[in-house]
Structure formats: structure tokens, C-alpha cells
């Protein structure tokens, strides 16, 4: 398979990324990977499941929070992480850093993925569990599909589970 350079690396020209988390810090990795793949001319699809649905839910996408509680990597003592206001504070610090580096916010990043031709799918089972309907999702979502459909679409792709 050749990449946009015209070089043959023997890699599939397709990636399938499963986004299962909904915190601000865990929403970025999957989306950035998908965007990088597209920038290299690699086909990409993203499957949003469980908490990952928050990334594509209209009422949630602008309000993702930085995950500090129970996060062994969080740069503050565990006892403080759960105090009132800490999550909001940590989220705003993280957002400032992101903006300062001119990285797009989550909504804009998903819109970018869509404009770049990424197929965005919502997990049917997770939608049922959370009582969501198609109309609750952002317009960029292509389709609501099940896990077997995921495997069909992801055939031949490198898969990433975030």
C-alpha cells in the first residue's frame, strides 16, 4: 500500500479508531490520531462508544471535563482532586494550555475530521444504554452502527482502542 509520499511501507491505508472515553484529556488522542492519518492520506474511521459518545453528543461536546479523580497521572493529590471546583479548575487550565498551542477544541476537531473525509460512527448499544437518539448527536456523525458493522467497516484497517 502506498502513502501520500508515493512510498510503499506495506501498511494498510486505513485506520479504525474506537473512542470509548469522554473526558477532555482522553477525547483528544483518538481524534488527533484520526486527523493525522487523514493528513497523510490514510483513510480513517472513528467509532464512538460508551463515554466516547459524549464527544459526539450535542449537549456534551463543549463540556467535556479533564479527568483528575482516580487518575494516577493527575498532577495533584488524590484527596484534592474530588473537592468542589477542582474538576472545573483543572479543565479550564487544560483548555487554556490547549488554546495556547493553537490546538482546536473538541467540537472543531470533530468538524475538521468530517471535512477531511473521516467516517464517524456512533455505537448503537451505547446509544440505547444512555437513552440517546440520532437527533441528540452532532450532525457530523455518519451512522449509528453495531459492533459487527464496525468490523465490517474496519476490515483491513489498523485498529486503535482509546
Amino acid at each position: 500500500m502506498t502513502d501520500g509520499n508515493g512510498n510503499d511501507h506495506g501498511m494498510p491505508r486505513k485506520v479504525a479508531i474506537i473512542c470509548s472515553k469522554g473526558s477532555l484529556d482522553m477525547a483528544y488522542p483518538g481524534l488527533i490520531l484520526a486527523n493525522a492519518a487523514r493528513m497523510m492520506g490514510i483513510d480513517a474511521m472513528v467509532f464512538f462508544t460508551f463515554w466516547g459518545l459524549d464527544i459526539i453528543t450535542e449537549k456534551k461536546v463543549d463540556k467535556l471535563k479533564a479527568g483528575m479523580v482516580g487518575n494516577p497521572s493527575a498532577p495533584l493529590p488524590h484527596m484534592l482532586a474530588g473537592l468542589p471546583g477542582m474538576e472545573t479548575f483543572a479543565t479550564s487550565m487544560m483548555k487554556k494550555k490547549i488554546q495556547g498551542l493553537d490546538i482546536p477544541d473538541i467540537r472543531e476537531l470533530v468538524e475538521t475530521l468530517d471535512a477531511a473525509g473521516t467516517d464517524l460512527y456512533a455505537c448503537k448499544m451505547a446509544m440505547d444504554m444512555f437513552g440517546l437518539e440520532r437527533k441528540d448527536l452532532i450532525p457530523e456523525v455518519k451512522e449509528v452502527i453495531g459492533a459487527m458493522d464496525f468490523f465490517q467497516h474496519a476490515e483491513g484497517a489498523q485498529t486503535f482502542f482509546i
Binding site: 502513502d3 501520500g4 493525522a36 487523514r38 493528513m39 497523510m40 492520506g41 477531511a116 473525509g117
Partner: peptide, 10 residues
């Protein structure tokens, strides 16, 4: 992406 379909990034 229409102008450089094989990868505008590179």
C-alpha cells in the same frame, strides 16, 4: 483535501 487527496499534511 480535494486539492491534495493523498494527504495534504505532507
Amino acid at each position: 483535501y480535494q486539492l491534495f487527496p493523498k494527504g495534504p499534511g505532507i
